[in-house]
Amino acid sequence: MAQILTVISLFIFVIVGHWTYVSMKKNIPFFESDGQKLLYHTKLIAFFAVLAGFFYFFLYSFFAKWCRDGMIDNDWWLDGFYAGYSLVLFYGCFFIYLSIYYMIDRSVSSKMMIEIDKSANKKMTYNDLIAVYDVEKKYQEALDDLVYGGLIKKTDDKYYCTYKGAIIARLASLFKKGLKLGRGG
């Protein structure tokens, strides 16, 4: 229990640190590509993660004492809590698996590298890659996925956000503004 509380506290510290730093910093560097932007944020998160790690033993001893002194370790719901915790860990591992699976299946970069490797001369122009990626089809597929997921609906020729889509779009927009990510996509 003390370990879980400690890790959650450290994680909150990382999120707060990351958000505060980005929102306080006036001159976010200009990124030539999304890769550079991602690297910048990854380094920031890693910095706060390592910084938070130094407080582990201090926080752990605090929470261990708190759990011993309090009723927490004796409470009847503790067994249920740990059963739920085993699910959280399982879902966490599953999330990593799913994201890797998704990357293997859908990653645009990997698809392009594979196509270059498959091509006769092992090299392709931008127009060849456009033809393989099929941009026009990609628009329709993405919109169909959104309709299927209930985030948008199609009426006549126009697409509108559903209630569920509006919540997700608002959250995404808030996140992008908070971390100064730009319009993204």
Partner: peptide
């Protein structure tokens, strides 16, 4: 949130 094509489209449609 940053890179997803679907999220970007949903945000554009929302606004």
């Amino acid at each position: 949130i940053d890179r997803s094509v679907s999220i970007r489209m949903a945000v554009d449609i929302f606004f």
